[in-house]
Simulated assay, not measured.
Amino acid sequence: MLTDERHQLIRDRLAAEGRVLAGELASRFGVSEDTVRRDLREMAKAGQCRRVYGGAVAAAPFAAAPVSLRGGHAVEEKMRLARAAVALLSSGQSLFIDGGTTNAAIASAIPRDLELTIATNSLSVASALSDHALVELIVLGGRFDRDLGTCVGADTLAAVAQLGADLFFLGSCGLDASRGVTAFDSAEAEVKRAMARNSAGIVIAVTNDKLATAAPYRVAGPEAIRHLVVEKTAPAAILADFEHQGAEIHFA
């Protein structure tokens, strides 16, 4: 297979899924991982992708795409993360759950025998919990952003300020052991920070493509993460950095 053909296939995969893994591409193309890594370096230099541990992500980060486009990405991985995340819950807790497709999967996976109080600014999370008989559901109003799928702004912040939570399930756009949790939208980041301040602990469930990446707006430092739920294939070196800063790692 010619270099240009590989590059086009990589671009197509990035457009469809937002990420590629060097090992998977090497197997698919019948070439060495060194060859794929060279392809990715060349493409990153040309601005066609952004290198991350083990592969690359789209140059215009997929996590910044509208939530409607991200819904079909890594569905099985998010379902596994969700099942592992809800194992951290116990009856009687109060939770914040903000936006994101992984958090929507978590809301859907919450066992029906758990009695919880859940506050959310996400319409998809609220919809997933609307028929959960034992959940006292608090929908945090405000200006609805269709791309984010959440309410943001002054009214949302005022509603968050009136509440407290045992745990905050924080939807992460980027997660890095030095920069911490980050987001692509300033209004979204502001709501996330408010929820973090009013919570006793932060839980993040994240797919591998978001590890060792960062978005422009800081939400919380890595030391604020109490529980980090990751895929079994998450890089050990990256996880060790989070463990060193106090996070408990859970594998899905």
Score class of each variant (00 low, 15 high):
residue 225 I to F: 01
residue 11 R to L: 15
residue 121 N to W: 11
residue 153 G to A: 07
residue 84 A to L: 07
residue 87 A to S: 11
residue 171 G to L: 06
residue 66 P to V: 02
residue 179 R to W: 03
residue 170 L to D: 09
residue 136 E to C: 08
residue 158 A to R: 14
residue 20 V to T: 00
residue 169 F to A: 08
residue 52 V to P: 06
residue 64 A to H: 09
residue 30 G to Y: 04
residue 135 V to G: 10
residue 78 K to A: 00
residue 228 L to R: 12
residue 139 V to E: 08
residue 104 A to E: 13
residue 237 A to Y: 04
residue 235 P to E: 10
residue 161 A to K: 12
residue 197 R to D: 14
residue 66 P to N: 01
residue 223 E to C: 03
residue 142 G to Q: 10
residue 57 V to M: 07
residue 1 M to V: 11
residue 37 R to H: 03
residue 219 V to R: 06
residue 26 A to N: 01
residue 40 L to T: 04
residue 125 V to Y: 04
residue 89 L to P: 07
residue 1 M to I: 00
residue 45 K to Y: 08
residue 136 E to V: 04
residue 49 C to K: 10
residue 236 A to I: 08
residue 26 A to W: 04
residue 192 K to V: 03
residue 110 I to W: 02
residue 131 D to S: 15
residue 105 A to E: 13
residue 186 S to N: 06
residue 40 L to R: 02
residue 105 A to P: 01
residue 24 E to L: 11
residue 19 R to F: 15
residue 206 V to I: 14
residue 177 A to I: 02
residue 114 L to T: 07
residue 87 A to T: 10
residue 29 F to W: 01
residue 71 G to H: 11
residue 3 T to W: 05
residue 96 F to N: 03
residue 72 G to L: 04
residue 101 T to M: 09
residue 1 M to R: 13
residue 102 T to W: 02
residue 190 E to H: 11
residue 48 Q to W: 08
residue 135 V to P: 05
residue 38 R to I: 02
residue 13 R to E: 15
residue 37 R to N: 12
residue 246 G to L: 12
residue 129 L to Y: 09
residue 137 L to W: 09
residue 181 V to M: 09
residue 182 T to V: 11
residue 42 E to Q: 13
residue 30 G to P: 10
residue 121 N to F: 01
residue 172 S to Y: 08
residue 82 A to I: 07
residue 12 D to M: 01
residue 38 R to Y: 03
residue 223 E to L: 01
residue 72 G to E: 07
residue 58 A to S: 15
residue 42 E to Y: 04
